[in-house]
Design a protein around this nucleic acid. Structure first.
Lengths: 217, 217
DNA sequence: ACTAATATTTAGTTTTGTCTAAAATTTTAT
DNA sequence: ATAAAATTTTAGACAAAACTAAATATTAGT
């Protein structure tokens, strides 16, 4: 597998994940900041190698073996992210670019030993689950705060909107990464939430809640 | 810098190191398992970028800036080797191929933090010195046992000949990596050495001595 | 159902790094 | 000193992965 092939496989995986439809050429091109014609070329190649299923004008979908490949790349990416944060004191928002490079290193032993060094983590610093060697997830543990049920509590592990105004809001309201957040009440009328953080209870709008990720333990 | 350019720079560095002559096209080609014509092509490119000095038919030599580049790659390679051995329990002879990949990762912060995690090591697992961020070495501390002066003692850190018979010999004579070796006496007649390891003294031939590396502290 | 808009593919180039074969230069041996 | 051998460079071609422009297929709007 070349570097470029791996990047395509990963992109197709992320775009197709969850949904049960195939991924469009244009979507891949946009995501990878390349041209649709380049995508078509590469998809043909991946198709010949049996990594994707492809019919002209119908989009692509990962094959069994493509899926395995994708999961192995995701596993490497996320383990490296944990390494960067836990061992090298990177902050959770600095890790992506470096992990993007490290995920292409080829050595099974390296990944196994890294996994061990890190204590076999189940999620990465953004709360996304780390696939096992065999390609299995602990069921997804990362949720938007507005989507969890009443009474749920979990660790605040990330934001969807990382714009300055939103981060400033969080700061002002003393909501930080790593805090434990509990959903005390939901208001039907405006979908606002009553939450508890560090013994403090207060209300946040649906808009805020829909931009906060929590990891349910 | 592309991956390939980095590989050429590193090869030219290693072939030219020590000697004060320029490196031949053929030598680079052989080392890199490629053809001389490919080497010529790449050298031209590196020359245009100012990384090497090159005159047709006269071989190459790293420029000031090429040397800096090479040292930065060597630094990364050797730091990663220390990481693999110290943190991931690789053995000293398993690290090379993986480090060869890791040395191309681009992130200054990553290398600085890695250096810190490892406690700012001065030598890699083979006893080769690690250049500082500024490209300076602690003067070479790796020597062949037959080349050190009487009374010198140091850590056994590697072998030149790693063939099975030689390793078996070391095993039989209870010489292992990490042992402290002291040169007690030199015999003029056959250049054999009287050495001391763990309170034991015995004599080894010049041939054995010239295949053992020690690191002088 | 038909046309307009959008999405996708094809055909033909480009760039990077490699190769082979042939030409040019340098070195070695007599 | 000169011919033979070895080394190095040039010229031309190729594969991978990208691009542009043109052609083709699909989808959407009326």
């Amino acid at each position: 597998m070349t570097l470029s092939e791996e990047d395509y496989i990963k992109t197709i995986y992320h775009l197709g994940k969850g949904k049960n439809t195939s991924v469009s050429t244009n979507a891949v091109a946009e995501q990878m900041k390349t041209k649709p014609s380049s995508v078509t070329d590469m998809i043909k190649k991946l198709s010949e190698k049996g990594l994707v299923n492809y019919k002209k004008y119908q989009g692509v979908r990962l094959s069994e073996s493509g899926e395995r490949t994708a999961l192995s790349i995701v596993r490497k990416h996320r383990l490296w992210e944990v390494f960067l944060v836990d061992k090298l004191d990177f902050s959770w928002d600095e890790v992506h670019d470096v992990a993007e490079q490290l995920e292409h290193i080829k050595s099974e032993k390296l990944i196994d030993k890294l996994d061990q060094l890190l204590g076999f983590p189940k999620v990465d610093p953004h709360g996304d689950p780390i696939p096992s060697k065999e390609g299995l997830f602990n069921k997804a543990s990362k949720h938007l705060l507005n989507e969890v049920s009443l009474g749920t509590s979990g660790l605040c592990i990330g934001v969807k909107d990382s714009s300055a105004p939103f981060l400033k809001f969080l700061d002002k309201n003393r909501i930080a990464l790593g805090d434990t957040i509990k959903v005390i009440d939901k208001e039907e009328f405006d979908d606002s939430l009553l939450i508890e953080i560090n013994e403090r209870q207060f209300r946040i709008s649906q808009q805020i809640a829909s931009n906060l990720f929590i990891q349910i333990s």
